[in-house]
Design a protein around this nucleic acid. Structure first.
Lengths: 199, 199
DNA sequence: CGAGCGATTGAACCAGGTCAAACGGGGTGG
DNA sequence: CCACCCCGTTTGACCTGGTTCAATCGCTCG
């Protein structure tokens, strides 16, 4: 977490979510949050009622801006990786700049999200792995990956292709499985940053 | 154009762009604008210097929010269809609400942009055609389509596939070419709204 | 133990990509 | 005025990366 972030956050007010956990349901009353770390997934609920992948939010992004205007949020929001959210806008900063900053980050995040559906399967997955890395990138980063189903929806590939691609990357040594596993059964893996290519 | 829009806009300050025209170059000093109508394309300039498609902005969206913070814009911005931009934030509205509204629209626009790379080729192109329609949708709408190259980059298809798909839709009567042509040689076409399917 | 769910792997198929050729219209120069 | 070129588009034929379908595995939980 970068210094700016931590200086703004009130540790007491931080919300923590495990991967896969629901953050806000579409239509719920709620409030706005800033993503302090981790990756969050949006789903639009289409007329039929089924959710469809609608984008990602990552470090610095705002989720639930619409609750501030309408009192209800329009997207289902779930944690893709373990993540922390802080109330927004924070008391510590000028509201105007906070808003502007959010707006700008939104543009960039959108660009990155689009890129996750560009190019061949391997490139997409490499880029997606890059999304899970924190801003200050260590040489090797250990994290828990979301279910293949999520990765498939985000990249517009199929589960099978994602699985095959990850196997390939494992063979190349770009990622390696961690021996220890979490209580809930999700496996974590190590990502070799330098082998990922430009994020 | 909806009533809210027009009440806010100062007609004198409106900027008009033709399709294909450059609005802002990445790195330029500039200012922020709201899209009053039309569709605008963002390109990120990657380290090599080549632009890559990074998203769209449409009616209500803000372009160049980052110039307000940094004085320079980070994306190349070009008009995809003829469009009009008005200075932002407009004097007529409370800045806070204007910002919040922009933030919210940004989320939604991002979701729509992602959807343009989802599903089969025909669905993608249908959705893309939907993007060119104004908010209040007439039964048949006549517009000038962007070059195939753009449509291909936006949908993550190839030019050839876009061409074939459009031919198919033409055969089905979803779109039909207009006889008259514009001065600059670009063809316009009629879109049969009811045959498009849900946008 | 068996049911259930996610992940993995194999094999066949196909939607879309790739390569190539041809068209059309606008602009330029002779 | 015509000849030529340039560039975007269209169409055809072939090829392939990724999807689809299906079988298996491993793990968790009742």
């Amino acid at each position: 977490m970068n210094p700016l972030m931590s200086s703004i956050s009130d540790p007491a007010a931080t919300l923590r979510f495990d991967s896969g956990q629901l953050i806000q349901e579409a239509g719920d009353a709620g409030s706005a949050w800033r993503v302090a770390n981790g990756v969050v997934r949006f789903d639009a609920i289409n007329p039929g009622g089924e959710p469809t992948y609608a984008g990602l939010a990552m470090e610095g992004d705002i989720v639930g801006a619409d609750t501030l205007l309408f009192g209800r949020c329009s997207f289902r929001t779930t944690a893709l990786t373990p993540c922390e959210l802080v109330p927004w806008p924070g008391a510590a900063q000028a509201e105007r700049d906070s808003l502007l900053n959010a707006l700008m980050l939104g543009e960039r995040r959108a660009a990155r999200v689009v890129a996750l559906r560009s190019g061949q399967a391997v490139e997409r997955i490499r880029r997606l792995l890059g999304v899970f890395l924190p801003q200050a990138t260590p040489a090797v980063f250990s994290t828990e990956l979301p279910p293949l189903r999520d990765m498939a929806e985000i990249t517009a590939l199929t589960i099978e292709t994602v699985s095959r691609t990850l196997s390939g990357l494992r063979r190349q040594g770009v990622i390696e499985p961690e021996s220890e596993r979490r209580g809930n059964g999700r496996k974590s893996c190590r990502i070799m940053t330098d082998l990922l290519g430009t994020t």
